[in-house]
Design a protein around this nucleic acid. Sequence first.
DNA 1: TAGCGAAAGTGACCACGGTCAACTTTCGGA
DNA 2: TCCGAAAGTTGACCGTGGTCACTTTCGCTA
Lengths: 197, 197
Amino acid sequence: MDKPIQTRALQTRARLLEIGRAHFMRDGVSGLRVEQIVAEAGVAKGTFFSHFGDKEGLLTLLIGERMTAALDRIAAAAPPDAPDEFATALAPLMAEMAPDAQTFDIVLRHSGATGTDEEGPIARNFLAQVEVLTGWIARLQPDAVRADADPALLAEGVQAFMAHAMALTFCALHSATGIDARLRPFLRTWLAPLPVR
Amino acid sequence: MDKPIQTRALQTRARLLEIGRAHFMRDGVSGLRVEQIVAEAGVAKGTFFSHFGDKEGLLTLLIGERMTAALDRIAAAAPPDAPDEFATALAPLMAEMAPDAQTFDIVLRHSGATGTDEEGPIARNFLAQVEVLTGWIARLQPDAVRADADPALLAEGVQAFMAHAMALTFCALHSATGIDARLRPFLRTWLAPLPVR
DNA sequence: TAGCGAAAGTGACCACGGTCAACTTTCGGA
DNA sequence: TCCGAAAGTTGACCGTGGTCACTTTCGCTA
């Protein structure tokens, strides 16, 4: 019924992860060769794939752990007091999500775009993002953030704008302005409280 | 100075495009093999790459021409009279942009995410989308659409939500509801006119 | 029309992710 | 302590995208 994982397998997996992490930190996504990792770990190619499914399987773990750390730090800090501060608060997370186009690509592909129960640390991170954002938003309603919409909907919208702003990073025309500067006008318009009637 | 393109090259290119289009229409992105196309066209592999750069070069042309056709049809039709009609009006375009995950992936990667001058029919389509949307929005301001924001910013925001809604299509949890149903609440909240003070 | 330079096309070759049938190791129970 | 089944591992093999030094074709001018 249960399937006990042998320590041998855990060790192999840990070794692959560690070596993969080293390569990822040094060269990013593009400089990660399965054959290289496998050679350094002293195992056969097939072993890699039996552990991670495919190359992206490892990458999602590596990217996911960085995203998790970033989000944890953000959640532990003081929540922003106004929509304008959202972008700055989220900047460290976005830096992990989109250090380069290939990474961002993987993040998007495994995002489950806010809300699948499907596996994966990236998808889980997106769910956690919504929770954090929802908390921030609910806390600021109704004075600093519009109260005529569901906080969860607003939170998802923030994610959509984050993706938009990150994508613009890889476009020559917009890469000059910082990512939070690009995000801010959208969030301001999206979250602005309705004028008092 | 000028570089006259030989008719021979044009014919080869046209043949590759035509065969590629046939495969794309039958099997989508995933069922497109460069070697197959090249064999049917009776040319060498290198010829393909000298014409399109890489496999995605051809795919962006094929996807781009479908997106262009869809957007042209939308632009020619009557503009929507309320935010709620945006989603329905845009549905045919979104169907071309995201018939499957792989296609959507390519679209995103070549979008220039609204606003690079960089080449490519997909990036150009994104620019054209903004123009169409800006027109729609400006037309409805200030009664049916909020007037406190720049129409271009609102248009870009619509694109961000479109991407979000399309991404949700490939997520088990959300694929049940139609894409326009998913998009509508966001657009309603994003574009809703401010209450009269 | 010979011949030259550039454009177009060729195909052997490579890189690299991924597969799978066979083999080895582990471990619980008889 | 031996056995069988399942977990773990192996590495030869494959598919496919992409490269590049070389050949062929074309248009032009002397």
